[in-house]
Amino acid sequence: MIIEATGLRKDFTVRRKVGRFRREKHVVSAVDGVDLAIGRGEILGYIGPNGAGKSTTLKMLTGVLTPSAGRARVCGLEPVAQRVTLARRIGVVFGQRSQLWWDLPLAESFSLLRHIYKVPAADHAARLKRCTALLGLDEFAQTPVRQLSLGQRMRGELTAALLHGPEVLFLDEPTIGLDVLSKQAVREFLAEVHAAGEATIVLTTHDLADIEKLCRRLVVIDHGRVVHDGSLDELHARYGSRREIVADLDAAWPGLTLPGAQVTAVENDGRRVRLALDGATAGEVVAALAQAVPLRDLSVQEPEIEDVIARLYRRD
């Protein structure tokens, strides 16, 4: 396991105003006993609603925050105590916090990072060349970072995080606020990095397309606790997101009940019916339907991940 966490917790003390002058201390657990085991080469989506504790977990794994309780190991190191050693072996992109030098051209930030991470010149050049090709950095490498668009800057940040050849790449909202093309570029780049087997990738995101395109495994966190750990399919299965059959009929729907399926909606003056699969296969339901009513058209709709996540978030 390249990342391990057991009972990881982070408490924050918050002072709330009570009445006019009194303040009360409250302890809030932003992360409340998270267990994680991530193997080398995995690509994992760490998702959850705002304030669920995603960033806090990442900050504890990268040595930025000291955990209140529990244990974390990344690359076999203890993040806070061995922060400096660990920093050489991981790459981090926190969407809102830049690693780059604001007033200097992008290229100069890269060469500074080479010194900071003590990367051999040849390795640095090779990695930079690859990133430049994949992300199209050439156009703006000589532009001061403050003049870059958000999409360009994010490409710079990704490069900056990879130049020292990290074993783990932590990404906190890498696509937030980006235009469609840049999002696409970032996703393709990450898929490529993952396919090359270079780094284990952990990313938090609100963008469901990121999850669908990139993440084999999802860890969902809510109120500081892990509520799901598994594949996307398992998530669908568990949270009752079902495939749906939409049937257009030649006559009005007679109001049947079919075994292993549930009518979720009747539309178009009774000429369209939606059935959610609930145990039966699509084939069985279609066969049963064809026998009972005159069918004009049929389609099977896959569940939207948005719905799954939304349902998950609504659960309190």
């Binding site: 930025v64 920093a87 926190f94 690693q99 900071i116």
Partner: peptide, 10 residues
């Protein structure tokens, strides 16, 4: 912004 400093190996 102090995060950025903690993430470097220095």
């Amino acid at each position: 912004g102090f995060d950025a400093l903690l993430l470097r190996p220095l």
